[in-house]
């Protein structure tokens, strides 16, 4: 209960037994998120620690993923370096495509769109944000890939002299580029929602002033709205990054997993920790399963850090504006 009290005064409330029990139960129940997070870390560590012990840092630096032979003639060897690098590469591509479009989309919805478009677009944003990733995946495989393959060929044709746009063999399907484009489309609704929320809180008087001074709408955008929304946008982008890093099925369907660290984004070879787990899970033996658990723990910790940073940025941005 909240009693309106003078600042310095502390009120010692004596509660009845019912309230004490009630508060106890609710407090205990609210710890569920903390408990689940701790349990996730604990269980993945428990199942995967053997692999960390056996491979140490090599688990992060090695490019070999080999379950070994059952008779022991080939020793198993696990390293997630290509998958980690692949996850980051794909997510980076996704973010660098999604953020500019999200900014344009948010500015459009806040300042440029005709009134009749704005409300329905809110529903559209919510709808596409709710489309499951498996549907993005099947669409990406069937519809996007043939198109994106053409774009990749064009990029390779004109910019092929830049190292990252080179391809060793001219196969353009299932590349990090295509996975990145698909993820960009997938995370665009979230990043747009955040950006729109932040831009809509831009101080109206300053916008009006800038509009009056320069006389152009774009001037007001550039001098007031964009700087104002910068930190919120960074937070939104980080949220999108977290999503992109953790995405499994959509990436699995459009990316060729290859155990070789690859930065050539148009080539048909990439990696993703989440997709690795999904693809190897079915046929994994007990030891490989442990390696997958270890990989899951790594993914969990990375996304946790990214999301921590994202939410603290978004929260701070939200606070300073209110």
């Amino acid at each position: 209960m909240e009693i309106i009290a003078p600042d310095k005064r502390k009120i010692a409330v004596r509660r009845g037994i019912v309230d004490k029990a009630f508060r106890g139960v609710v407090t205990a129940g609210s710890m569920i998120s903390l408990i689940v997070l701790a349990l996730i870390a604990a269980f993945l560590l428990y199942r995967g620690f053997e692999v960390f012990r056996d491979f140490g840092l090599k688990f992060f630096t090695s490019s070999k993923w080999d379950a070994g032979a059952d008779d022991g003639s080939i020793a198993p060897s696990f390293g997630v370096a290509p998958m980690l690098v692949g996850s980051v590469v794909v997510a980076t591509i996704a973010i660098s495509i999604a953020v500019p479009f999200a900014v344009v989309m948010a500015l459009f919805l806040c300042f440029y769109a005709p009134r009749f478009l704005r409300r329905p677009m809110t529903s559209v944003l919510d709808l596409v944000a709710a489309v499951p990733s498996v549907i993005y995946g099947i669409w990406g495989y069937a519809i996007l890939m043939p198109h994106a393959k053409g774009w990749a060929e064009t990029i390779n044709h004109w910019l092929g002299w830049i190292w990252i746009f080179k391809v060793p063999v001219p196969i353009f399907e299932r590349s990090p580029f295509i996975a990145g484009v698909l993820l960009a489309i997938m995370i665009l609704p979230i990043v747009t929602s955040v950006a729109r929320e932040v831009y809509s809180q831009a101080p109206q008087d300053q916008i009006d002033a800038a509009y009056g001074l320069g006389g152009t709408r774009w001037g007001a955008m550039r001098t007031v709205v964009l700087p104002f929304g910068k930190s919120g946008l960074v937070g939104g982008a980080m949220l999108g990054l977290g999503r992109a890093l953790g995405e499994t099925v959509a990436v699995y369907l459009v990316l060729n997993l290859v155990f070789k660290v690859n930065f050539q984004i148009l080539a048909s070879a990439g990696g993703s920790v989440a997709s690795l787990i999904a693809s190897r899970f079915g046929e994994a033996g007990p030891y490989e399963l442990k390696a997958l658990m270890a990989a899951g723990l790594v993914l969990f910790i990375i996304t946790l850090i990214v999301n921590f940073i994202a939410s603290s940025i978004v929260n701070r941005a939200g606070k300073s504006q209110r």
Partner: peptide
């Protein structure tokens, strides 16, 4: 009992309902 006194006292039927100085308080 929905707002608290800053100072002074509220005493009802000899029961101190709200006396900040003595940290006395009865819930609403």
């Amino acid at each position: 009992g929905l707002a608290a006194l800053a100072d002074g006292s509220l005493i009802v039927n000899d029961t101190p309902w709200d006396v900040p100085a003595n940290n006395q308080w009865v819930s609403p």
